[in-house]
Write a protein that binds this DNA or RNA. Structure first.
Length: 948
RNA sequence: GCCGAGUUGGCGGAAUGGUAGACGCGACGGUCUCAAAAACCGUUGUCCGAAAGGGCGUGCGGGUUCGAGUCCCGCACUCGGCACCA
């Protein structure tokens, strides 16, 4: 960097001076507790001010970071700067602003580091947090430091575990559509108001049966079912953590479906509310859509198909009950539990050879097909879209027309969705059509396809071939459109006991256990009957034991038959524990799985509101003040939540679920955790590869002659994430050093709209620095350091420039358009520089408007303007409407829509006067060229449009 | 395939249906300097023109309108999500 010793302007706003100013103000803000936000009650309430109004609240949150050992790059702070600008602006509007930053500190990288080094993950994580705090403090973020925490803090873990127990001790009442305490369910069983699904009364059940009955209803439950097992990571994963091609999102290892006993959360109970309440929050439409998509609600019908020969029946799910007359066969998933019952002893006479796969009996054919299907991974199943299947030998009855339709098994029907069985309508479904073609099955259209249409027709149209015939016919939907026909068929099915309208969801229950060390232990022990019991409150938090080895047992990534083995299982002394849970000291076994990374982030918004409360997650008064609904019927929640879109269906869905459980149980007054969500874009960066395809250090690449060069050799430019592997990292520390934090903040905010990703360009940062230097020069003499401020009155043009800027910047601030706010402030600064105005009446509002964006410089100039206090709570300037109109405006004169002349006019000129002036403008006269003026559109004073 | 977002100078981007390209970077020219850097001033969509002025321009093709980057219809491409979900 340049040295400034010889520069004549020794009071210039250089990076050194900026650094001095910034550090000084950061220390002062800390010392004075400038950004501490008072609570209504508890340890953060203002002494002696209990019950005093605190003013309007504004609660801002960033998606909290994982404290990575690599430190920050310039992309990370983008959202933090934006929320900081909002927070500072709201404080100048008089709001009580809650803004802090915690750390999401459990997680895989720390565990991997621990496995490699033997160092406890806590040690490394705490060091990373300290480093990140240092980097962020230098940015000058207006956070309340008293409210920061990390999810690994024992005090935080205690409440994560407490919430887990609340969920464990609840069940979902479908009638009341809310979670209720498990004690109320037990009471209903005991009183006889409710019986077991098989009709058994409470008194008929053995104690263990009672427990199993209760346990089966809990919102957090242990269940043996197919889960995503990832041998490469040595742990199971939630559906949300598995990519579309069947690999782990983390590490990209293959994932296999295995039946394992694991913890789950009954998030599916909340499917409807999670979808419906999206209408009530202020979120980007794209994220709402992703959540709707993920939950995948579809309305349709369940239809019963009888199999007389086997004296049984199966249900299919369809979204198109209107096409039932076109169902010419049925398909079960290969894994469907009814398959063995449907397999006949021999092929029915006349069975086509293609239906048997060439095998002698249905039993052989089905067994062979099931074996092949089971051996396939999910990925293989997905990749092979050719329709295959085999006939079971059984026929089922189509309930509407009595037709006997063959029943197949085929792997294009999935076991996990709907009922795992379908009615196949080749006339109206492309997949069924392909299967029917391959197996020579009849194709019946039930919606009239357009002329010349081939294959399955999925569009709307009048129903055809859809009427019962003969005596006692009660169903005829011919001529109805799809919606009408659906309704009529469902009504008929319900009236005849053959099915009913129903809704299914794609969402599965949330797999909640992981075989890892570095996560929250479950507050659960098992008794001698191997059933889970919650650890009592006074024994929380359950802390992680010290273990010799932090690693779970990992396997070859494609070793599908391996079995998860959590590291905690090896801590014998910890696992086996004697507790007195009310009936004397007894031996128990601890749960050895840990919670997934998402646990802490599923409720942390609550802890910011009352971070040290020893008695509750948060005091109800504090929760109500910071998160409660602002208007009756509102959802409540954080006023502004900013983060990346990558959490659209993971964190944001989980957090909504937990929040709703806590709402149902009466612990919070808000129905949603985050009322307004904003997705910031990413800062990406150019990277360069040489002729071998190896990345070279991006900062050393030169651009010349229309190409890029590294060490004298040509390189090609690529674009991607900032990171070590692309050798294109730029750090905030480098920016502080070269330009100062304020310049860095202004540059990041001015690069473009907050929600758009954009490339980092270090050489453009200087533009922000030049801007701040111009502001500085308006107030301070660069050579002497003396003040240049005077008390001169402002001229009309400057008044106009100032007030339109105030007006515009306010609007931009409200709408998070910081890039245009910066542009307006630059314009004002350039105007003042040009006309040589350093009057207090102009520069003081400029400094105040700059304060949210470049707070250190603004504070420094504010004090040079003679103010002793921080400008944190100084009022943001208000535009005077009298100065928003200027003395004259440029009127554009168009002829046939093209601009042909401009005239300076008074803003309150009359239409007639303006028309006359426009028609007299020389170039307009020339363009009209004597033609007849047919029409004149006047939008005084800005525009006249002449039609000839 | 379905859903969502997008496509504007050399680059990042700005534009309540009303002067397209604010603001910034870069580039070019200048001031200062022995010189360079920094800083400052000016020019900068493109083509024709000495200038005045004019032609063409917001992914492509249509449409509505006195007037379209903006509204409507169709298409292409890019990015994100979902996907044999019945």
């Amino acid at each position: 960097m340049t040295t400034h010793d010889e520069t004549p302007a020794s009071y210039r706003y250089t990076s050194e001076l900026a650094g001095d100013i910034e550090r000084r103000w950061q220390d002062r803000w800390d010392a004075e507790g400038t950004f501490e936000a008072p609570n209504p009650t508890g340890d953060l309430a203002v002494d002696g001010a209990d019950g005093q109004p605190l003013g309007d609240k504004y609660f801002i949150m960033d998606m909290f970071p994982y404290p990575s050992g690599a430190g920050l790059h310039v992309g990370h702070p983008l959202g933090y700067i934006a929320t900081d600008v909002v927070g500072r602006y709201r404080r100048m509007q008089g709001d009580n602003v809650l803004h802090s930053l915690g750390y999401d500190a459990f997680g895989l990288p720390a565990e991997i580091h621990a496995v490699q080094t033997g160092e406890h993950p806590r040690t490394n994580t705490l060091a990373n947090i300290a480093n990140m705090r240092r980097q962020l403090r230098r940015l000058g973020l207006a956070h309340d430091p008293r409210r920061s925490f990390a999810t690994i803090d024992p005090d935080f873990v205690r409440w994560t575990q407490w919430i887990f127990i609340q969920i464990f001790e609840s069940w979902y009442d479908d009638e009341q559509q809310r979670a209720r305490p498990i004690s109320e369910l037990r009471a209903e069983y005991e009183s006889g108001a409710r019986t077991a699904p098989d009709g058994a009364g409470w008194a008929d059940l053995e104690p263990l049966e009672r427990r199993l009955l209760i346990d089966s209803r809990r919102l957090a439950y242990v269940d043996e079912s197919p889960v995503n097992w990832c041998p490469g990571l040595g742990t199971v994963l939630a559906n949300e953590e598995v990519t579309a091609d069947g690999r782990s999102e983390r590490g990209n290892f293959p994932v296999f479906t295995r039946n394992l006993r694991q913890w789950k959360m009954r998030i599916t109970a909340y499917s409807d509310r999670l979808i419906d309440d999206l209408e009530r929050v202020d979120w980007p439409e794209s994220v709402k859509n992703m959540q709707r998509n993920w939950i995948g609600r579809s309305h349709g019908a369940r239809v019963r198909f009888q199999v007389e020969a086997a004296s049984t029946s199966f249900d299919v799910f369809t979204t198109r009950p209107d096409t039932l007359f076109g169902a010419t066969y049925a398909v079960l998933a290969p894994e469907h539990e009814l398959v063995p019952a449907l397999v006949t002893d021999a092929w029915p006479a006349g069975t086509p050879r293609s239906w048997t796969n060439g095998l002698e009996t249905p039993a052989e054919a089905v067994a062979a097909y099931r074996a092949v299907a089971a051996a396939k991974t999910d990925l293989e199943r997905q990749e092979n879209k050719d329709k295959t299947g085999v006939f079971t030998g059984s026929y089922a009855t189509n309930p509407v027309n009595g037709e006997q339709v063959p029943v197949f098994i085929a792997d294009y029907v999935l076991t996990g969705y709907g009922t795992g069985a379908i009615m196949a309508v080749p006339g109206g479904d492309q997949r069924d059509f392909e299967f029917a073609e391959a197996y020579g099955l009849p194709i019946v259209h039930t919606v009239q396809p357009p002329e010349g249409h081939e294959g399955a027709y999925v569009g709307d149209g009048p129903a055809v071939n859809s009427a019962q015939t003969g005596e006692g016919a009660t169903l005829d939907v011919n001529g109805l459109n799809i919606a009408e026909a659906k309704e009529a068929v469902v009504a008929w099915l319900e009236a005849h006991g053959a099915g009913e309208g129903t809704t299914t969801y794609r969402l599965r229950d949330w797999l909640f256990s992981r075989q890892r060390y570095w996560g929250e232990p479950f507050p659960i022990v098992y008794d001698e009957s191997d059933q889970p019991i919650a650890v009592p409150d006074h024994l929380l938090p359950v802390e992680l034991p010290e273990v010799p080895d932090y690693s779970p047992k990992t396997y070859e990534p494609d070793d599908a038959d391996s079995t998860p083995e959590p590291p905690l299982a090896r801590a014998d002394d910890w696992v086996h524990v004697t507790l007195d849970l009310g009936d004397g000291p007894r031996p128990y076994r601890r749960e050895t799985n840990t919670m997934p990374n998402w646990a802490g982030s599923s409720w942390y918004e609550l802890r910011y509101t009352d971070p040290h409360n020893p008695d509750a997650v948060t005091d109800p008064a504090n929760e109500r003040y910071w998160l409660g609904p602002k208007t009756p019927g509102g959802t409540g929640g954080v006023d502004l939540y900013v983060g990346g879109v990558e959490h659209a269906v993971l964190h944001l869905l989980y957090a909504r679920f937990w929040h709703k459980v806590l709402f149902d149980l009466g612990h919070v007054s808000s129905e949603e955790p985050f009322h307004r969500l904003f997705n910031q874009g990413y800062i990406q960066a150019y990277a360069f590869v040489d002729e071998r395809g190896v990345y070279v250090e991006a900062s050393q690449v030169e651009e010349r002659d229309g190409g890029f060069w590294y060490d004298g050799r040509p390189v090609t430019r690529e674009y991607g994430k900032m990171g070590k592997s692309l050798k294109n990292v730029v750090t905030p520390d480098e920016m502080y050093e070269a330009y100062g934090a304020d310049t860095f903040r202004v540059y990041e905010m001015s690069m473009g709209p907050l929600d758009v990703s954009r490339p980092w360009e270090t050489r453009a940062v200087v533009g922000a620095q030049r801007f701040l230097q111009r502001v500085w020069r308006l107030l301070v003499d660069e050579h002497t350091g003396e003040s240049l401020i005077d008390d001169a009155e402002l001229d009309v043009a400057t008044l106009h420039a100032l007030h339109t800027t105030i007006d515009g910047v306010r609007g931009d601030m409200e709408n998070l358009r910081f890039n245009t706010a910066v542009a307006k402030l630059i314009e004002l600064t350039n105007h003042l520089t040009k006309v040589g105005v350093s009057s207090r009446a102009a520069v003081e509002p400029l400094v105040l408007m700059l304060a949210p964006l470049a707070p250190h410089l603004a504070e420094e100039l504010w004090s040079r303007l003679g103010h002793d206090d921080s400008l944190t709570h100084a009022p943001f300037p208000v535009a005077d409407p009298a100065h928003l109109t200027s003395a004259s405006v440029t009127c554009v004169v168009q002829v046939l829509g093209k601009v042909r002349g401009k005239i300076e006019v008074s803003p309150d000129i009359s239409d007639d006067d303006l028309t006359a002036l426009a028609l007299a403008e020389p170039n307009v006269v020339k363009t009209i060229d004597g033609r007849e003026v047919r029409k004149v559109i006047v939008k005084a004073p800005k525009l006249v449009s002449i039609v000839v």
